[in-house]
Design a protein around this nucleic acid. Structure first.
Lengths: 269, 269
DNA sequence: CCTAGAACG
DNA sequence: CGTTATAGG
């Protein structure tokens, strides 16, 4: 038995649902799906999207700003627990983090702020990063003590290394590839002790990219970024068998500017 | 020889241009066209819309608020003069009035504020009405002295009488059919001395309506309003031969929530 | 219901 | 370039 987890930034689930998301969900064989940028409250979603047959759902919309952010976790199994937020006074109502417990495993969906240099939104991103890193450490520690594994997946809005985006040279002063952001992602790995599973299984770059701007010809030119990550505790990473990015072949198939990122693990037993 | 003038609220000329306005303009035999709610600056329009072959144009966008209001006058003849605004400090930059001089005739395009009861927008409408009535009087007087005729056409956003809207009873407290607005339109006729040419030629109602809300089934139920008028000086009205509203047969043909209103006059000679 | 700008990405 | 919320109608 294997266990498959997929993360996808849907860039507006109402729009995506009319462009192929529903068909994609019907066809997927994943056991767990983490969504980001749902950009809707559950009641704004069609029922077959809000409560898809065969899935349990946790919706965590932004209550701070309508139509922004919003994460979700879909599981075939009924979760033992559902939690929204990570204990942050500033961020728990902003639809950026939710987690569920399955037997022996905590699964989290993360949508880290995008940021924009020289704006308050970059400061917000930095505050999020500082606070969230501490949470990641405590999460890992608690899981270790309890003998549980953790997977935090989602849109981290940071490319880690040069190999993680096509135009790294021209983006060194742009949000998403700033030295301090890259260093922070290094601390998630080295200090908090998580493993970037896709990179573990695909040590060679470039890519695989998971996001292409809608602007210009980014998708056609494969001018992508790898900013969607599946980060796991080491014990879970050791059981990873395969990983891939579902790059849509062309526009009619593309229902988001991000592509779903998937990892397969050996029986969690 | 006859002379034909049409007025049309286009509800966004960029949108209308993709839905049938261009074909309509190509097919029309009018000599003069007054447009309202252009909702674009000239440079935002495609060139064949901004400078249609065979037409001279006067564009008067709102510079006070982008994407709002905006009137235009299109003439087959080159105008002797073009003017934007009516001498109002408050309204001349809001894209609500423009006029051109043709030999012996001044043609104006008007987009009167829509208003909404118990809001500042109703007060704005009232200020506009007060100021504009005085202008209409002076315009008429100057024209009379110079032996010229005047036609002021456009969206006046007021239904004059019960016969001018289908649901008059339920709209007596709504902007567009308030007693004071109806009385004001009466003063345009009685005090300023203009003639409602469509009503002159069609003394019997109901209608002809020129606007149907996009909401609900207003168009299919013919729940319309007559709020687009062709108002002329008496000498010109005496030469009116025919008038009609181009109610679109159905949705694919409908490029605005308003229908073009046309009047035909005997040779102005 | 529809148009258009604006924020955000 | 695309999604969404909002103003205006």
């Amino acid at each position: 038995m294997s266990f498959t987890i997929t993360t996808a930034n849907v860039n507006g689930l109402r729009a995506a649902s009319g462009k192929g998301y529903v068909e994609w969900l019907t066809a997927t064989s994943a056991d767990v799906i983490c969504l980001q940028e749902v950009r809707a409250e559950p009641l704004q979603l069609a029922e077959h999207v809000r409560e898809p047959e065969g899935w349990h759902t946790l919706w965590a919309p932004s209550t701070a700003a309508k139509g922004r952010a919003g994460v979700a976790v879909l599981t075939r199994q009924e979760p033992l627990a559902r939690r929204v937020g990570f204990g942050s006074a500033e961020f728990d109502t902003t639809g950026r983090y939710a987690e569920v417990d399955l037997p022996g495993l905590t699964v989290a969906s993360l949508y880290l702020p995008s940021g924009e240099v020289d704006t308050p939104r970059q400061e917000e991103k930095e505050r999020f990063m500082a606070e969230f890193l501490e949470y990641l450490k405590s999460l890992r520690k608690r899981a270790e003590e309890a003998g549980r594994e953790v997977v935090v997946c989602g849109d981290w809005n940071i490319a880690h290394r040069e190999v993680d985006l096509k135009n790294w040279r021209t983006n060194q002063k742009n949000a998403g590839f700033l030295p301090e952001e890259r260093a922070w992602l290094g601390r998630v790995l080295d200090e908090a002790g998580y493993v970037d599973v896709v990179r573990r299984l695909h040590p060679e770059g470039p890519g695989p990219y998971s996001w292409w701007s809608y602007r210009g010809r980014a998708f056609d030119n494969d001018a992508g970024w790898r900013i969607d990550y599946i980060m796991t505790t080491p014990g879970l990473a050791a059981k990873s068998l395969a990983a891939h990015v579902e790059r849509a072949p062309s526009h009619p198939e593309r229902w988001s500017d991000h592509a779903p990122v998937t990892a397969v693990f050996d029986d969690l037993g």
